[in-house]
């Protein structure tokens, strides 16, 4: 008995036709950014995965707010995301509050911002470009915890 060939979905047919036609090639900046992203790898880091967070609420000044939560064994990163004028502000809380000397990095494919964690486990970064970002938590003597890449487009 032979297996019937699997049905190919519409999008794959369209993609294959267009790719072969060669009229919509990938813009050069796309692979260039992907090549540069290799510098963002963190071998051995523990990945904090997204879990359900409280629903976003409207903010009166016209901005938009989102709450995101990422967890891994023993550590939760909560992020409050606001956007103004096309840029993104992040306010974060790491819990349980890690020991002194913990450093946080907010990374995008284009820039990385480092912050010392406050005594209560908080940090903030403002004016990030919209797009993909991830937060790394470097605790002294432990493997880094990194949040799964998330896209923010105001």
């Amino acid at each position: 008995m032979t297996r019937r060939p699997a049905a190919i979905d519409d999008e794959s047919l369209i993609a294959a036709l267009r790719l072969a036609a060669g009229r919509d090639p990938v813009p050069g900046h796309v692979p260039a950014t992907a090549r540069a992203a290799f510098g963002l790898r963190l071998p051995g880091a523990a990945t904090a995965l997204p879990v359900a967070a409280p629903a976003p609420r409207d903010v009166r000044d016209g901005g938009e707010e989102r709450l995101l939560r990422f967890t891994t064994a023993g550590l939760t990163v909560d992020l409050e995301v606001t956007s103004m004028d096309g840029l993104v502000d992040l306010a974060g809380q790491v819990s349980p509050c890690p020991e002194e000397g913990t450093r946080v990095e907010v990374r995008t494919p284009h820039l990385t911002e480092a912050r010392e964690l406050s005594a209560t486990g908080q940090f903030a970064v403002t004016g990030l470009p919209p797009g993909w970002f991830s937060v790394v938590c470097h605790r002294p003597g432990q493997v880094p915890v990194v949040t799964s890449w998330t896209r923010i487009r105001p």
Partner: peptide, 14 residues
């Protein structure tokens, strides 16, 4: 589309 492709490479990195 650039965002989708970029996100795909970032996930592969992970």
């Amino acid at each position: 589309a650039a965002d989708a492709v970029q996100g795909t490479w970032l996930r592969l990195l992970e």
